[in-house]
């Protein structure tokens, strides 16, 4: 490709006009108090879009039991292998349920494959993003924690209902 250099006059080649122009632009931004975009985080929060992928949660079905059938598809697809499921038999109709369901949030990359692959829509990535801790072991969420997070309304736009506590 042929680059055509602009013909600069002597005055322009001293850099001064461009420098002054740049300086004027930056200076003109200082008094624009109204346009400041800083979000003062702990007090003011970002309105999360509905499809935001935060920490995973497990859903509770209408019958009061976890929806997960322990098919282990999420465990299988999880790229960083953050999910660990131990299955057990159950007398319920679904026949299998997770005895243990751990997600290591130190590993999770929030890709959402688990949500994508789940046949019973039991695992969802939700709007929680404050998971910092001083201890890595606290970042391994077990089944109870995941289920407890799942009970937090509001849930999904248009899908709030199934989340409610069982009657």
């Amino acid at each position: 490709m042929k680059v055509t250099r602009p013909k600069l006059s002597w005055w322009e080649r001293t850099y001064f006009p461009a420098i002054l122009k740049g300086l004027a632009i930056t200076l003109s931004h200082i008094p624009k108090i109204k346009k400041r975009v800083t979000l003062e985080y702990p007090e003011v929060r970002w309105a999360l879009p509905p499809q935001y992928r935060g920490a995973p949660i497990l859903l509770t079905g209408l019958d009061g039991n976890e929806k997960c059938t322990s098919c282990k598809l999420c465990e299988f697809i999880c790229p960083p292998r953050a999910i660990r499921i131990v299955a057990e038999e159950t007398s319920l109709e679904k026949e299998k349920r997770p005895k243990e369901f751990d997600i290591d949030m130190g590993l999770c990359i929030f890709c959402g494959y688990c949500q994508e692959v789940c046949p019973v829509e039991a695992i969802w990535l939700k709007d929680e993003y404050e998971m910092a801790d001083y201890d890595r072991t606290n970042l391994i969420f077990n089944k109870e924690q995941l289920l407890a997070r799942g009970r937090k309304p509001p849930y999904l736009p248009g899908r709030e209902k199934p989340l409610e506590e069982p009657k």
Binding site: H29, K35, V37, T38
Partner: peptide
């Protein structure tokens, strides 16, 4: 000043 120039609060 850098924040103000970049429309931030600093």
């Amino acid at each position: 000043v850098s924040a103000w120039m970049q429309d931030r609060k600093g």
